[in-house]
Each structure stands twice: as structure tokens, then as C-alpha cells.
Amino acid sequence: MTAPLLSVQNLSKSYGALKVTQDVSLDVREGRIHAIIGPNGAGKTTLISQLSGQLRPDSGRVVYDGRDITRLDMAGRVRLGLARSFQLTTLLPGFTALENVALAVQAREGSSFRFLRPAATEGALNDQAMACLADVGLADRARSQAGSLSHGEKRQLELAVALATRPRLLLLDEPLAGTGHEEAARLIAMFGGLKDRVTMVLIEHDMNAVFALADTVSVLVYGRIVASGSPAEVRADARVRAAYLGEEAA
């Protein structure tokens, strides 16, 4: 068996007495979608933030593509192909959708120490950005300011920006939150289509989406992984039903 693309080893983090991540270990294989589910406050976003480099763990290691990246910052990880989308959108509100994506293309290609040529006139930049927008179905909103987009459109743009960094591994923090039925269905189809190109770690509350997409599911409760396995195994796990799925049903 090949080495996993992302290997999380004994990750722990606390805020004072509150342990938000407790000895978490998981492997993500290339070409898979690995879902992390758990009740609210289980520490899912905190975990993603440690994987993306926004937060430093107190102990443990994050190994990506055979390389220890525990101490690497977010920008460095993005350049290695590890991108994330945010649950609360952090788009640049004053930039148009196209400019938001073009900036991500620019980060990857060529120098940004170019001072005189207007970036808007760079065809290559705009073309690639447009392609990413088209991928998420947002091409017709390219000229709109990100701040004026609807909630669902912001989620789509968030994805387009992440894709524009050409990730090998994409960390998705509740990409479907707040989207309508149709948008959600379209995004789920898109994730399915992306699977050949991009490995994904998916945090999601929408169980239909999780069980439709994921190859592996890990269940996080109070910062600890209580179960991990195929969707069917996890669904059948008594502890999971007690700790999580039962809670949802109640």
C-alpha cells in the first residue's frame, strides 16, 4: 500500500483547560474523500485549522506527502498544494469574483513584484481565473463584487479560489452550509467529479452528502476520534450511534 498523502499523528491542542484536540491520528490516501463528522463543538474546525497551518498544535505531527509540515505556515502549505476553504467566508469583499480568483492564480504563477502593468490586462491570469469560476458555475458573476454575492454564491466562489491554487489536497470546512438544495446538489456533483484530481478532507453536517461522497469517515467527539472506517462501518458502529448519530435523531 502506498504512503498516505496526509498523515496526522497524535495531534493535541488545548485552550487552557479546554482540550479541543486530543491525540488525533488519521491518514488520508491520495484520491479519496475523507469526511470528518461530529456534533457541534467537537473541534472539527480547530482540527482543520491545524491541518491548514492557521493554528499550531501543542503536540503531534502533520506529515504531508512524506514531509513534516507541522511548523510550516499556511502560505507555505498552500504552495505545497494543501488548500482550504473557510466556513465563515473570508473573501475579499471589495474585489470582484474574478479578481478574487485571479489573485489566487497570481500567487501560484509568476512574481507578484510587478509594479506597473495593470493586472486586469493580463490575459493569462484572467483566463485561468475564468476557468475556475466556470468550474463552480459562477462564470456569469465574474464581474460582481464578492461582497455583493449571495450566500450560496460566496460558497461557490470560496471553492473557486481554493481550486485556483491547484491543490493536491483540499480541506473543506462545511462547504454546503447555508446553500440551497439545488446549489448543494450541484456542489456535491462537483466534488464527485473533482475526486480524480484532488484529494479532499471534508467537514460536513449534511449526512446525505457525507455518505454519498466519502470513502472514509472519521467521527470526532470532544476533540477525540471515536470511530473511523468506511461509511457503512461507521454507520453501524454502536459508539457512533450513541455519541453522535443518536444525538442527531433525538
Partner: peptide
């Protein structure tokens, strides 16, 4: 309006976003 200007303005609007697409 240049590439550099976009990075500068982008950092003003959200430094977190800029790091998330690979800029320091």
C-alpha cells in the same frame, strides 16, 4: 492596479485570505 497593488490591497482586506492562497 498592478499585481503588486492587488496583493497589497488584498492584504488590507483580509490577511488571512491572502495567506490561504499562498501569500506571505
Amino acid at each position: 492596479l498592478s499585481r503588486f497593488g492587488r496583493v497589497l490591497t488584498g492584504t488590507r482586506e483580509s490577511a488571512l485570505r491572502m495567506q490561504a492562497i499562498g501569500f506571505r
